[in-house]
Each structure stands twice: as C-alpha cells, then as structure tokens.
Design a binder for these strands. Structure first.
Lengths: 191, 191
DNA sequence: ACCTGAACACCGTTCAAGT
DNA sequence: ACCTGAACACCGTTCAAGT
C-alpha cells in the first residue's frame, strides 16, 4: 500500500526560503530542511537528486517571482520612468529576500543550466524596455550595464559594504539616475 | 626546547590563495590548507583563531595588492582616462584572481571588521580621483556608482552569468564609458 | 510508493599529550 | 614553544530494510 506523501516539493522550497532568510546558509542543512517539513534527510533524495537540485528549485521560484514583479506593467509610461521604477522594484525584491537574492547569484546556482530559462525570463522586462529605446543592437550592452549597476549596488548593500557614511538610499538614486541618463541620453528627457 | 616553526603565516596565506584559485571553495578545508604547508589541521589553530580569521588574512593580502594596483599612478593624466584605466585594472585583477575576488566580497569577509581598513585603502585611489572632479560631497555617491558597476559586472562575468551572446569585452567598455560620461559629464571631454 | 536507521567519508574545532 | 592523535558534533549522501 502506497504511503501518503508527508510533504511536497512546494513545501520543501518554502522551507528552504524560510530557513535561508531566517538564519543564513548554515541553517540550510539537509537535516534542517527535512525536519522543517517533518521528514528525515534521506527522504529528500527521493524528490531531489541532491542539495544543489533542491536549492535550484527554490531559486527558480524566486526568479519567477522576480520576473513577475519586474514584468508587471503597472503604470506603463515613458521608458525612463519605467526603468527607474524597475530599478527600485529590483532593489525592493533584493532587500526583502536578501539571502534568496544572494542564492540566485551564487556561483553554484549560476552554473545550473536548468535555471537559464528562468534567468532569461527575469531579464526580459528590462530588455523589452531598452530595445526600442536604444536600438536592438545596443540593448544587450545597455541591459548589462544597468543590471551590473543594480546587482553591484545591491550585493554590496546587502553585504553591508557601504560603511563609510553617506546616505545609501540617496546613493542608489544618484547612480540609478546617472545610469539611466547615460543610457537614454539623446532620448526623451525626464523631470 | 622550542621546536622550529614548520611554516609561516605568509606561506599559509599563499596556500589559501593557491588552493582557492586552483579548485574553489571545496578545496579549502583546514586539512587541505594544513597539508599544503606540511602540518596538521589542528596546528593552524595555534596561528589563527579559526578558519574565518585565516581567510581574512588571505583576503587582506589581496586587498593590499588591489590597493597597490589601483593606486599606482603610472600614466597620471586626465581624470577620465585615469578612471578608465582604473576600471580596466580592476577588471584585470578580478579576472586574474576570480575566487580571491569573490572571497573579498563574500558575506563572511565583508562582516569582518579587521578588513575595514584594507577595504578603505583599496577604495581610496578612486575617491582621490573623483573628489576634485565631482566635488567632495558627490564623490562618495560617485564612487559607489562606479564601484557598483564594476563589481556588478565582474561578479556576473566571473560567475558566467553573461550567456545570452554579445561581446563581453565590448559590453564592459560600453558600460564603463557611459558610467564615466555620466559621472564627469560637464567636465573635460574625452577623445 | 514512500520513508527511515545506520553507515560512510567528510567537515571545523578542541584538547590532552608528546617533544 | 610547537605540533599532533584522538575525539566531538556536525555535514551530504547512499542504501538496505521496513511499511
């Protein structure tokens, strides 16, 4: 007789996110994940081939959330304002899910081919805004510049690298404005 | 009778760098570090309070190298060209020491107060160029923008996040040029 | 079908003991 | 003073066995 499942992949991914945000990577042992969903560690291997597959599933969920957040066309308007809003949403997501954000960009997760699609989907809203604004050829370079700024700023902010004084919110806005100005220089002015 | 030391802190730091660049974090166990310098793992605790102290010593060495590289005034000239050269040197260092670079920016290392000074010293050459160019008040914001771009780009490049085609060298130059243009807009023009 | 206890080869770290 | 063997409490993972 088939025993009923005690848990689900979805619950396991939720547990991963909660443990991660709650206590960092050292709270994220297979034992602790298993006990959070009421099973034993070896049972996790019936569902995921290994820890990195399990983390990948959690990371994919987060990338989907991010794609939805950034792709949400609430208040569609000028390119500049849309990109600015997107920058702030990006930061909001990262600050709300700091360890998950770090997981997404961790070397182990970036190496996982099964996350490529989700990554591409999360990058698409930005590319879609940039393509008509800077041209199809420059859009990839432009997106890489903007996301480099955003990711660099956020990973340093989340790791608490900004400690020499100054206002961090203001610094983010300063860099975002200048980055967008540079990208869209000859296009519609803002403000 | 005092037994002669079998190794030195300096050799241990070298071993850390070599193991790190050679095989990533999973080659970096206390046992492997110890055996690389010809001692047993417990002996490392006579020299360093724990693994993170040991890594911190290695990270400090790398930060000093970086400060020297970026602070080297070879070819002092216009601010724009100097910052551009600095950007390329920054990338060169990161690409030559990818795992060490990642270590420097790892959460564990950023949290270490004993690295603050070395971090500040590595950031100083950029601030020194920006202060007269954008004014003392804006220099911190400007440095944060530039280093966010550089760190974001490099951490994504090193993690192999840039996989959707395009020329990565060209993308770096594109973003660097636009970032510097934005920072120094009303100042001396370049080329 | 689903879950587990016991085991394996590792970790970082401690400490009493050797020289 | 300097180094080590043995031990401790953990890891991720495997696998035969239970229901």
């Amino acid at each position: 007789m088939s025993a009923p499942a005690k848990t689900s992949d979805r619950k396991i991914c939720e547990a991963v996110r909660n443990l991660l945000e709650g206590g960092g990577e050292r709270s994220l042992s297979m034992q602790k994940i298993a006990s959070a969903v009421g099973i034993q560690a070896p049972s996790l291997y019936k569902r995921f081939a290994g820890k990195s597959h399990l983390l990948s599933a959690a990371a994919r969920g987060a990338l989907v959330e991010m794609a939805e957040l950034l792709g949400n066309p609430a208040g569609a308007g000028k390119t500049y304002e849309s990109l600015e809003r997107m920058g702030h949403l990006y930061r909001k997501f990262a600050k709300k899910n700091p360890r998950t954000y770090a997981l997404i960009f961790s070397e182990a997760m970036v190496a996982r081919e099964d996350l490529l699609r989700a990554r591409q989907a999360a990058a698409e809203p930005m590319l879609a805004l940039l393509r008509p604004a800077v041209g199809k050829d420059a859009a990839l370079n432009a997106a890489r510049m903007l996301v480099s700024y955003l990711h660099g700023f956020l990973s340093m902010e989340l790791a608490r690298t900004f400690r020499f004084g100054g206002n961090v919110n203001e610094a983010f806005q300063y860099g975002l404005t200048k980055t967008l100005d540079a990208l869209l220089e000859e296009k519609a002015q803002h403000g």
